[in-house]
Amino acid sequence: MKILLVGEYSRLHNSLKEGLTALGHEVLLISSGDFFKDYPSDIKLKRKFDSGIQKKLKTLLYKFTGVNITSLSLKNQFFKHTERLTGFDIVQLINESSFAATPKYEKEFIDFLHLNNKKLFLLSCGTDYVSVAFGLSNKLEYSIFKGYLDNTVSKETYFSSLKYLAPAYKELHNYVYSKIEGVIATDMDYHLPLENHPKYLGLIPNPVNIDKIKTPKTQEPTHKIKIFLGINRSNYHTKGIVYFEEALEIIQKKYADKVEVVVVENLPYKEYITKFDKAHILLDQALAYDQGYNALEAMAKGKVVFTGASPQFEAFHNLKNQVAIHTRPDTQEIVANLELLIKNPEKITEISKNAINFIEKEHHYITIAQKYIDIYTT
């Protein structure tokens, strides 16, 4: 089949492309690289006017004319590639707003792709109308909107997520859903909001290209246990990073002779993955019920990851062994779990092995690619 993957988050579509290609399908990926992460694409649309004085000029222009020149630039770049974006059996969107452009232009992209290709599918693997509305509903113990709901973080901080509830984005949501065959969730955080939705096709776990992860698996702790925290300021609050920072402050004071802590911020993907290779423990997120791609890649390398590993996640995979540390927004609980590993380093080795086996069994990129093909052809 000819498959067009549109947009990129956390290397998901790159990994899926590798799996689909291994199965013999012809795949093209178009994206803008996911902001500073700069993931590769066959067709790369460059985001312009997003920093420095250009961003200030963009804001002024939008204020007086209503034109978002970043989105207009993305539109102009997109439509230069129309010949390469037609005739596909399957088109899959990474999000309702795959290029993070304004709804007006996203609709134009959808229109073109729907008219010039056969089937259109949507992923739910990041914030969108359904997941945001669900997260604000207080149906679960906590959500990425915890700081917003308990009034400890300003509403403005959540703009990039709350925007999906604005009329223009809700209209875009309805428009996209009117064009797609269905929507696929990539983990429990997006499965739970979509349960019983008429367009929901089910959960397919994120693909991880085991063959590309060539760095040595995590070594058993010998002297100091290395703990790694990578911060992305744009999702600082939605990942609950503050709980990790508070926990690390306590751990560093109490176990300075037993741990080595590395904290990095806003690194491009290629640089980021080299930074955590020597870590034994990776602190990922404290407001999730399942793992995103960052956690999965770390688990594939044998890291003990503090992330979403909820009872719902364990039940879905019928897990008998611990593969990650389920992490809730509770500083003292995080401290206690870190202490358990520091005092019992053999647990690090045990969970590391479980994590590697889990990724190979449940997230292998070729196995996952076949699951997509099964849904596409049903």
Rank of each mutant, 00 (worst) to 15 (best):
residue 135 G to V: 03
residue 251 I to Q: 02
residue 209 N to I: 07
residue 156 E to W: 13
residue 63 K to Y: 11
residue 254 K to E: 12
residue 260 E to I: 05
residue 255 Y to E: 06
residue 341 L to I: 04
residue 351 I to C: 04
residue 109 F to M: 14
residue 377 T to D: 11
residue 86 T to H: 08
residue 163 K to T: 03
residue 310 S to F: 01
residue 46 K to V: 15
residue 129 Y to S: 00
residue 282 L to D: 01
residue 172 L to A: 14
residue 56 K to I: 14
residue 43 I to M: 05
residue 266 N to Y: 07
residue 58 K to M: 11
residue 120 L to V: 12
residue 148 Y to Q: 05
residue 34 D to K: 11
residue 75 K to L: 12
residue 361 K to E: 09
residue 242 V to K: 15
residue 314 E to Q: 08
residue 195 E to I: 15
residue 236 Y to G: 00
residue 250 I to E: 03
residue 12 L to H: 01
residue 122 L to K: 08
residue 210 I to G: 05
residue 34 D to P: 07
residue 372 Y to C: 08
residue 348 I to Q: 05
residue 81 H to Q: 03
residue 335 V to S: 06
residue 5 L to T: 01
residue 44 K to W: 06
residue 375 I to F: 02
residue 267 L to C: 05
residue 363 H to D: 06
residue 185 A to S: 12
residue 296 L to Q: 04
residue 300 A to S: 05
residue 361 K to W: 03
residue 311 P to H: 07
residue 158 Y to C: 02
residue 326 H to E: 09
residue 371 K to Y: 08
residue 84 R to M: 15
residue 96 E to C: 06
residue 358 F to G: 07
residue 69 I to N: 08
residue 230 G to N: 09
residue 376 Y to T: 05
residue 221 P to V: 14
residue 360 E to W: 11
residue 154 S to A: 13
residue 9 Y to A: 03
residue 196 N to S: 13
residue 6 V to S: 03
residue 118 K to N: 14
residue 155 K to C: 06
residue 326 H to Y: 02
residue 236 Y to E: 04
residue 225 I to R: 01
residue 322 Q to E: 08
residue 364 H to A: 11
residue 31 S to C: 11
residue 215 T to L: 13
residue 135 G to C: 11
residue 341 L to F: 01
residue 331 T to K: 13
residue 86 T to Y: 03
residue 311 P to K: 04
residue 189 D to L: 03
residue 83 E to Y: 10
residue 152 T to Y: 13
residue 7 G to N: 06
residue 373 I to Q: 08
residue 82 T to W: 09
residue 333 E to P: 10
residue 296 L to C: 09
residue 94 I to P: 00
residue 152 T to S: 15
residue 112 F to C: 13
residue 183 V to I: 15
residue 9 Y to P: 00
residue 60 L to C: 10
residue 94 I to Y: 07
residue 254 K to Y: 05
residue 346 E to I: 09
residue 144 I to P: 02
residue 119 K to A: 13
residue 39 Y to V: 07
residue 274 T to P: 05
residue 250 I to D: 05
residue 74 L to T: 01
residue 319 L to F: 10
residue 28 L to M: 09
residue 118 K to R: 11
residue 143 S to K: 02
residue 82 T to I: 14
residue 159 F to I: 09
residue 236 Y to R: 02
residue 354 N to P: 06
residue 371 K to L: 12
residue 95 N to T: 14
residue 299 M to C: 05
residue 94 I to H: 02
residue 85 L to I: 10
residue 187 D to F: 04
residue 281 I to M: 04
residue 340 L to V: 08
residue 179 K to M: 15
residue 350 E to P: 02
residue 6 V to H: 00
residue 147 G to E: 07
residue 87 G to L: 06
residue 238 T to R: 02
residue 69 I to E: 01
residue 48 K to D: 01
residue 248 L to V: 15
residue 70 T to M: 15
residue 337 N to Y: 09
residue 111 D to G: 11
residue 226 K to P: 03
residue 232 N to Y: 10
residue 250 I to T: 12
residue 130 V to F: 14
